[in-house]
């Protein structure tokens, strides 16, 4: 069940279903959590651009973290936030050139795409195959 996430922006219709899928698969405080993916709608025509963590090889967030709280999962290839190692300096938030690391001020946690443990839900619900997974 180890899947690769592929983004094809040309297929995106800007429906933002991915954001909802992400929020609901990362619940926080009893409700949907902050989304880790954004699909920016472009009008007209009805199109969009999905932006999500690229799990960079030499990731700025990993390099800037002083406590090695961002760790690549060997199985899925996702860079994960080890919350218990995080000291909330938020350097990763500012350092990611794509803006793909966020800070939840209310819950005091860093969040980013974790590839849903190998089964990205955004791709599962994407109606236009802008987000796809491959085995």
């Amino acid at each position: 069940m180890n899947k690769r996430l592929q983004v094809t922006p040309a297929r995106c219709i800007g429906c933002r279903t991915c954001e909802i899928a992400c929020a609901f698969s990362h619940p926080a405080g009893g409700g949907p959590g902050p989304t880790r993916i954004r699909a920016y709608p472009v009008k007209p025509p009805e199109r969009g651009v999905p932006v999500v963590c690229l799990q960079c090889d030499s990731a700025a967030c990993v390099r800037v973290c002083p406590t090695q709280a961002l760790v690549r999962d060997d199985r899925t290839g996702a860079i994960l936030v080890a919350e218990d190692r995080c000291i909330l300096c938020r350097a990763c938030v500012w350092a990611c050139p794509w803006g793909n690391v966020g800070y939840d001020e209310g819950r005091k946690v860093i969040h980013k795409c974790d590839l849903c443990a190998g089964d990205p839900q955004c791709a599962r619900y994407c109606p236009s195959r802008a987000l796809e997974t491959f085995e």
């Binding site: 920016y40 651009v49 990611c96 050139p97 794509w98 803006g99 690391v101």
Partner: peptide, 11 residues
């Protein structure tokens, strides 16, 4: 900021 970084990435 991180949000604008992301928006710029989209652009």
């Amino acid at each position: 900021c991180d949000r604008c970084h992301r928006e710029q990435a989209g652009a």
